[in-house]
Amino acid sequence: MVRRIDTRLAEQIVAEATRVLLFDINVMDETGSILASTDLSRVGSLHRGAQIALSNGSDLEVDKAMAKRIPKVKPGVNMPIFVDGEVWGAIGITGAPEEVRQYGKLLQVLAQMILEREALTTELRRNQRHREDLVLHLINAQGSFSATELENMANRFGVDFSAFWFVLVCDFLHPKTVLNEALEDIARAQWKLSQHIPQCLSARTSHSELIILDQISISATDHCMAEIARERLFSITNLIDSSGKLPLTVSIGVGLSGITAFNHSWKSALATMQAGIARRSNLRERCFSFYEHRLFSALSTWAGTWQATEVMRPLEILKAQDRARIELLPTLKAWYRHGGQPNKTAEELRIHRNTLDKRLKRVNELCRINLSSTEDYVSMYIALQLDAP
């Protein structure tokens, strides 16, 4: 049988009571066994007075005369402890009933308050675990649940599959991060989210990573999705920052609706994190949106594949030939930055248009491509993205 009152809670009740009362206090479980007492010699023994009170479901006052008739019973008042209408145990205060009766009622209320608070905390923790389980099942594309089971579970927490959702990845990892500090920051972040953005669901996926599911409460189109994503990214980052101690990096994935949206958005957020870190201009940059790294995020899974090798081949030839002069590759990158506009490219490089044309012609010759061709233009651009540091 699982005790509703454990030793820790019983000792807490006794400790709280003895701060204001000078009488002996006993806390019993639902069988009448003493879990905690000011008289340590009684811990573990059965309290006959408590058993009677528990059996009757009402207070039992024991005076001197009754104490003589019942073995191992002292004068006092024994009261059942009710939580949500159920008897969880009993509490007793030793002394003449007429002297301790008024304190006994206060003691009973104190015990019930402590147990109700613990029950609520336990329920909140259980609820949080269920929320985290749901998040993990959603981002991992259902797992062991069917679509119907997952939808029923989601409905319990107000997750509407027809709404648009973003998945954010928060990374608390830092070269000097201590494990406990990261875990504490993640816990603080989850508490902050629950207080200020209760519709968000979150789950810890490692000792340094937190996943957040953020719902858009307004109807959105692809045209404004990038703007919404950026606003949510910085809003949530600032909220977490206000409660944490460690530096963090945050990415947000694509906003989608439907049961598969979470897995898709989560994967795009992970790819965006990788792309953002690889392409950031300075180490202080820490917020990355899928909509600002769309292509590179999509290409991140190409790393090490034969497709990437083939796309990169012309660029590798250019890098090998350009190693000594160091002019063709920077010229090509500048040309792409300006969308192939020769005047702006030449202006940035401070060279003549004819010089630019000669360099681009040399790129075509070395790489055996034609940058005027749409296919070669796009292929070389992708190669440059894959080659980004």
Rank of each mutant, 00 (worst) to 15 (best):
T237M: 05
A187V: 02
L210S: 06
G244A: 15
A220D: 04
Q195A: 15
P198V: 01
S202Q: 09
C224L: 12
E231H: 15
A229C: 14
I218R: 11
E181K: 13
E184A: 05
D185V: 03
I186P: 00
I211F: 08
H196W: 05
C170Q: 02
S217D: 02
S194M: 09
I228H: 05
E209Y: 03
A203F: 08
A226D: 05
N238A: 09
S242H: 08
V178S: 10
H174W: 06
I197C: 13
A189M: 00
H196C: 06
C200S: 12
S243N: 12
D185W: 11
R230T: 06
H207R: 13
H196L: 11
C200L: 09
S202M: 10
A189H: 00
E231G: 08
E209Q: 15
H207E: 04
S219C: 07
I186T: 00
C224A: 08
D214E: 06
I216W: 04
S202R: 06
T221C: 09
A187L: 04
F172P: 01
I216H: 12
R188S: 11
F234G: 01
F172C: 00
T177M: 14
G244N: 10
D241K: 01
D241Q: 05
Q215P: 07
H223W: 09
F234C: 03
I197L: 15
L183M: 13
R188W: 10
L201Q: 03
W191T: 07
K176Q: 15
E184L: 14
S217H: 03
S208K: 11
L201H: 02
S243P: 06
V178C: 15
Q190D: 04
P175L: 08
D222A: 13
E181T: 10
L201V: 08
V169E: 02
G244F: 09
V169T: 12
S194G: 15
M225P: 02
S242F: 07
W191K: 12
S235D: 10
T205V: 15
Q215F: 07
I216L: 15
C170P: 02
A226T: 00
W191G: 02
I216C: 14
I236M: 03
M225I: 12
I240Q: 01
E184V: 07
Q190Y: 11
I240F: 07
S208C: 11
D214H: 10
V178T: 04
S242D: 09
C224H: 13
K176P: 03
L233C: 06
D241C: 10
R232L: 08
I197G: 01
I186A: 00
Q195F: 10
H207D: 14
S235V: 09
A189S: 00
D185F: 13
E209L: 06
C200K: 00
Q195L: 09
H207G: 14
I211T: 02
L193F: 02
L173G: 07
C200G: 04
C224D: 12
D241R: 03
G244V: 14
S217M: 06
T177H: 04
I240K: 01
F234K: 04
L233S: 01
D214Q: 13
L183W: 06
Q215M: 07
S217Q: 03
A226I: 03
M225Q: 10
A203R: 05
I197S: 11
L239R: 11
A203K: 02
N238H: 09
D241M: 06
A182P: 00
E231Q: 12
D171T: 04
A189V: 01
D241F: 04
A182F: 02
